[in-house]
Design a protein around this nucleic acid. Structure first.
Lengths: 346, 346
DNA sequence: TTGTAAGCGTTATCAC
DNA sequence: GTGATAACGCTTACAA
């Protein structure tokens, strides 16, 4: 009876290092060493401890370990959305690199909301993340203050702005859209439409808009208000925006889109309107999502190295965690991918 | 001098509950109560503690709290990929529900690899997750054993199989594809092509295949090997598969695809081959991604309530965490969405 | 309502 | 190479 009872008692609680120690006939110190500095344990003893741990199904208790060692082996990433493949690729690559080092990743999805992003960062800091990656630098000041207070290494991704107070891993959104616009100007376009994501509280979109305007200004051109459509991105928004833009004279010969999905929407709507792209209208995207190369006509866009951003960010943070001073990561340069949705105006 | 030195000392370490207690002139117990059971603290004292905590920038240390209270406020989700909007929607919804309850989410991306999924689950358990959601039930037995050993509440999502030993939140992939196939049979199709994701180690895809075969068998039909293409999903794989299938006589009049991206690939390739859909060929997808409604012709598919799966899974797990016994969640039924990519064979 | 003090499970610092 | 033992920061009986 007592036996059964005590069996149940044992089964009821998770094994501790002490249980393993007793089973292996050693001290808890040796159990700890077996897992953390195996070289400092005699091979025979090590075997015994490993066997005992395995048979008990023991895993070190993370909270106890964190308290004693001051390491949590947790990092965090806050991104604006998982709705497209862009940030998903960054997160996937980051996770792969971190996993190599035994670091698990918290994921926070802000849904483009600064307050949610702040809440995620606070929750992550409270749970002891050792490093943090956030997309963009347009965040509440409290977000960066909280990170600074905790002295947690962090990076800002997808932005790269000279003079940013933050360590950045990404590209210049301004330069990228400047280049795209110059290409269209070079083809001879003079009247432009722009379909873009909400600019407010989004430094990347703001920079894209600035890049377009700067390039146009160089040729003494500008965007007419009736040719600029700003809204939460979707294929559907791309469609309706194209229709609106083309119905407001003077009719643009080129439409620049803030991302590929907006551009795909524009392409689909152009076809529905019986417009031939690129003969009657040029359209550009940004990101080079999988669909961009497949759609008809294939979309002229810029390819961003999303996975590379994730890898670089993780590597940077790991170096910081190891106490090193990472060499600053230079700006990435998205590749211009000229496909078939752009041509000189007819 | 001493002052500066001690200031630095103070600045160097993160504040503890004791620092807050001293600043507020109370004990650490009162600090703890202020944050965990505020009703049990006198309002004036509470104010003082809150002010002290705020001015010191104190947050409870997660490891200390976890050790003492046996709660981590962490849950985990393991999904096969973030490359499409499907699992992203589940994760997003799950996270939103958990965040309401102050629970932060670990995300593990297995990349359709059982060993990686197992490694993620182990890492999460070691870090003290209180609940776990995994996609599908085709996992290494060790995965479920590890969860069982830790007595951690869990759910399997996207699968719903009678007789499953696991709590499931999802739909019957078999029934869904049975229905899709019956629809095509009802239109008069007799020769079918199938483009599908890798079946091995993926219970959902296996069930989809079974659903198709079962429906065909009911009419004395079957799939010819030359009309079945199995591979990692992508638009490109959809394209090349369609071409291969149509070049192997007898020529199918309908092609069933394992998901929308495969179907979109098939649609694009059909157009490139000069085939008119649906007059000369019917194509079906699955998932109803945003693109499905936009492409030309709009895709006949089935809509899965992805966010709903995430919400239900989180709600189920929260009930378990609260010690409750959740009523079993009935199978979801994906909606059949008939658009314009299906018609009777000509 | 508040304080005292005993854990929680691990790691790290010493001796040996 | 190994074992005591004291942290680590918090929560929670139990007392007051």
């Amino acid at each position: 009876m007592t036996l059964i009872h005590s069996n149940n008692e044992i089964a009821r609680r998770a094994p501790r290092a002490l249980d393993v120690a007793v089973a292996a006939g050693v001290s808890t110190a040796t159990v700890s060493r077996t897992f953390n500095v195996p070289d400092k344990v005699a091979p025979t003893v090590r075997e015994r401890v490993l066997a005992a741990a395995a048979s008990l199904g023991w895993m070190p208790h993370a909270a106890g370990r964190a308290l004693a060692s001051n390491r949590t082996y947790i990092a965090g990433a806050v991104i604006p959305t998982l709705d497209d493949e862009i940030f998903a690729a960054q997160v996937g690559a980051m996770q792969a690199v971190f996993a190599e080092e035994g670091i698990t990743l918290f994921l926070g999805n802000s849904n483009y909301d600064q307050d949610r992003a702040l809440a995620h960062v606070r929750a992550m800091l409270a749970r002891g993340v050792e490093a943090l990656a956030v997309v963009g630098e347009a965040h509440r000041p409290e977000l960066f203050e909280a990170i600074a207070t905790r002295r947690v290494p962090y990076v800002v991704t997808y932005s790269y702005r000279l003079g940013s107070p933050h360590p950045c891993i990404g590209f210049s959104n301004r330069d990228a859209f400047h280049r795209l616009t110059r290409h269209l100007l070079g083809l001879g376009h003079r009247v432009f439409g722009l379909i873009i994501q909400p600019v407010s509280a989004n430094d990347r979109v703001e920079a894209r808009l600035a890049g377009v305007q700067e390039a146009l200004a160089e040729d003494g051109l500008g965007l007419r208000p009736q040719h600029v459509r700003e809204g939460r991105w979707s294929i559907a928004f791309g469609r309706e925006s194209l229709r609106a833009i083309l119905s407001a004279p003077p009719c643009p010969t080129a439409v620049i889109c803030g991302n590929d999905y907006l551009a795909i929407g524009a392409l689909l709507e152009a076809r529905a309107m019986g417009l031939e792209v690129p003969r009657e209208l040029s359209v550009t995207g940004f990101d080079d999502v999988a669909m961009a190369a497949q759609i008809d006509p294939p979309l002229t866009t810029m390819r961003v190295q999303n996975a590379e951003i994730g890898r670089l960010a993780a590597a940077y943070l790991l170096t910081r965690l190891a106490g090193g001073t990472p060499s600053p990561v230079p700006a990435l340069i998205p590749d211009f991918v000229e496909r078939c949705s752009t041509a000189p105006p007819s």
